[in-house]
């Protein structure tokens, strides 16, 4: 018998429904302030918007059909493009970082990870502000290059997709790095030696042993990274400028400037569905884990 089974019986029998005394407060909060608003928004997205406000007596799918309008479609494609670029770059950069981390001592790893995590825990607005100081026309990079006489006109490093990619990548990098690092550490070190005794060179070991065995973790991390990129708000808003808008900023404009809540709701629902779909995909990959097909 397991401890879990005993635990269930102990509390379940003694308290009966008493377990809900413990779960009740958090559950009530989540139902009232989380699920209810999300459901309300989903309902609003199915109503037409009229000059007099939301027409709750009629139902429509028009808000969702509008998502494929040329303008919004373009925004969606840009959001996808930027997100995918960031994820691909993160994956490429994560391997050398993870391998380096795994080679450090325990203390060194802790600190290095802390450094790589720092962009995540420092406020996105603050970071973006920092990036404007670096990437702007009078920023550190352009001033530096001008002082060196390498350029005459400033490079456009922000207020475009480049700016979004540069600014967003570090903040979500850890979602690729940490699972990969954990998978690397979990690898049986003898596998390397086994492969080498069989005549494999280090790079062959990396490509034929390390990469395949860490792929599930990497993939799961990459998907999470991708959904974070899709949903990011402050950094794209500040670094993308007025012409390079992404989905989340359009959602801000529609809801807070145009006050078109049914359409804003449709945007929210679309983002939610896409995100949950990808997260489930990632969970499927993680659940299959390293037990998945191997070579």
């Amino acid at each position: 018998m397991t401890g879990a089974a005993a635990g269930r019986a102990a509390l379940g029998v003694r308290l009966g429904g008493g377990v809900w005394i413990f779960l009740g407060p958090a559950l009530l909060l989540m139902l009232a302030v989380y699920l209810a608003p999300l459901i309300d928004t989903a309902v609003i997205s199915l109503h037409p918007n009229t000059p007099a406000g939301i027409d709750r007596s009629h139902w429509t799918t028009a808000n969702f059909l509008r998502l494929v309008d040329t303008y919004y479609w373009g925004v969606l494609v840009r959001t996808l493009r930027v997100s995918i670029i960031i994820t691909l770059l993160s994956v490429l950069l994560a391997y050398p970082v993870a391998v380096w981390l795994a080679g450090l001592g325990p203390r060194g790893q802790t600190w290095a990870i802390l450094v790589y995590m720092s962009p995540w825990f420092v406020n996105a607005v603050v970071k973006s502000f920092g990036w404007t100081l670096i990437l702007g026309n009078n920023g550190l990079v352009n001033n530096g290059l001008r002082a060196l006489g390498l350029i005459d006109t400033p490079l456009r490093l922000m207020l475009n997709e480049t700016g979004i990619v540069i600014g967003l990548l570090p903040g979500h990098f850890l979602f690729v790095l940490l699972p990969l690092w954990a998978a690397l550490k979990g690898l049986d070190g003898n596998l390397r030696w086994a492969a080498m005794t069989l005549g494999a060179r280090p790079w062959q070991v990396f490509l034929r042993v390390t990469v395949p065995l860490t792929l599930p973790a990497l993939l799961a991390g990459a998907i999470i990274n991708f959904t974070m990129n899709m949903a990011a708000f402050a950094a794209p808003a500040l670094l993308g400028g007025t012409r390079t808008r992404v989905l989340s900023f359009i959602a801000y404009q529609v809801n807070l400037e145009e006050l078109n809540w049914p359409f804003g709701g449709a945007l929210a629902v679309a983002m939610l569905v896409v995100t949950l779909g990808f997260v489930m995909l990632a969970q499927g990959i993680t659940a299959r884990g390293l037990a998945g097909p191997r070579r």
Binding site: D40, A251, A268
Partner: peptide, 15 residues
Amino acid sequence: IVPAVVYGIAMLQFT
């Protein structure tokens, strides 16, 4: 998991 933008919109409308 749920994007903050989505929850933000929901809370704006719900409040």
